[in-house]
């Protein structure tokens, strides 16, 4: 479904290339919620951007549905990958319903007119994230959590099999974080979507994710939480003078 093959990510600067992370190899299938974790600045967002073909890899390939993303046209990409970023600047003065409707852009005509069928899909997406009551509210008049949900609904309306989310739980209060993750988990399982999200809320991730991707400079450790904690990868990542990882209970403890 999704495959990273000897992927090097980073940036080309004039005559040299700055490698952020390298030798990334992993694969994911549909119907699975995966959390991408790793230290600040390790390249989680760069990896997401590379996977979504927003920037080219320095080496290696990202394969989705048996093809390298580099070979997809922009339209093909928009029909296959939905991306939810954290940025707050929204087109002003749009209602939640209208924002979600933007997700239909790959399928509508030049003017973006929604047909009956498109409206049904938008309605369904809004219902799935539980925003029915707020559908005519302006997007900048709702809470962070609600706006985040609206963005997810937009990705759902895009009807892609793959959804990438960059820190969808940031800025949310604790209960909202939990419900956000539960929502994504439900979507992955019930709608058979491949959902990959980056997060720093490790304990929530440990409890909800089917798979963990632990990004490190010289590679990616991928597996279920049990697999990663058994081989000590999580401890290596977390243990410090101040805290340690309790592998038995999947808890992060202060020393």
């Amino acid at each position: 479904m999704l495959e990273l093959r000897d992927l090097y990510i980073g940036y080309s600067e004039d005559d040299h290339r700055r490698i952020v992370a390298k030798t990334l190899n992993a694969s994911l299938s549909c119907g699975v919620l995966t959390c991408l974790i790793g230290a600040n600045g390790i390249g989680k967002s760069t990896l997401m951007r590379t996977m979504a073909a927003f920037q080219p890899p320095l080496r290696g390939e990202v394969w989705i549905n048996g093809r390298s993303v580099a070979s997809y046209t922009p339209k093909e990409l928009s029909e296959r990958i939905g991306v939810v970023l954290t940025e707050k600047n929204m087109p002003a003065d749009l209602t939640i319903e209208e924002v979600v409707g933007l997700g239909r852009a790959p399928y509508t005509n030049f003017w973006g007119t929604l047909k009956e069928e498109d409206r049904k899909i938008v309605d369904e997406a809004i219902a799935l994230v539980g925003l029915d009551a707020l559908r005519s509210r302006k997007i900048h008049q709702v809470s962070d959590g609600e706006r985040q949900k609206a963005m997810i609904a937009k990705a759902l309306a895009q009807q892609t099999s793959v959804i990438f989310l960059d820190e969808p739980t940031a800025f949310l209060d604790y209960p909202s974080k939990i419900s956000m993750m539960q929502l994504l988990r439900r979507l992955a399982h019930e709608r058979n979507k491949l959902i990959l999200l980056s997060t720093h809320d490790l304990e929530i991730a440990f409890q909800t994710a089917d798979h963990i991707w632990l990004l490190q400079q010289d590679g990616l450790r991928a597996g279920t939480l049990d697999e990663l904690s058994r081989c000590g990868a999580i401890s290596d990542f977390l243990d410090s003078d101040e805290l340690y990882y309790d592998a038995k209970n999947h808890r992060i403890m202060l020393r």
Binding site: D15, H16, R17, I19, L58
Partner: peptide, 8 residues
């Protein structure tokens, strides 16, 4: 010529 680790 500058070759880096991404080269094949």
């Amino acid at each position: 010529v500058s070759i880096d680790e991404t080269w094949r």
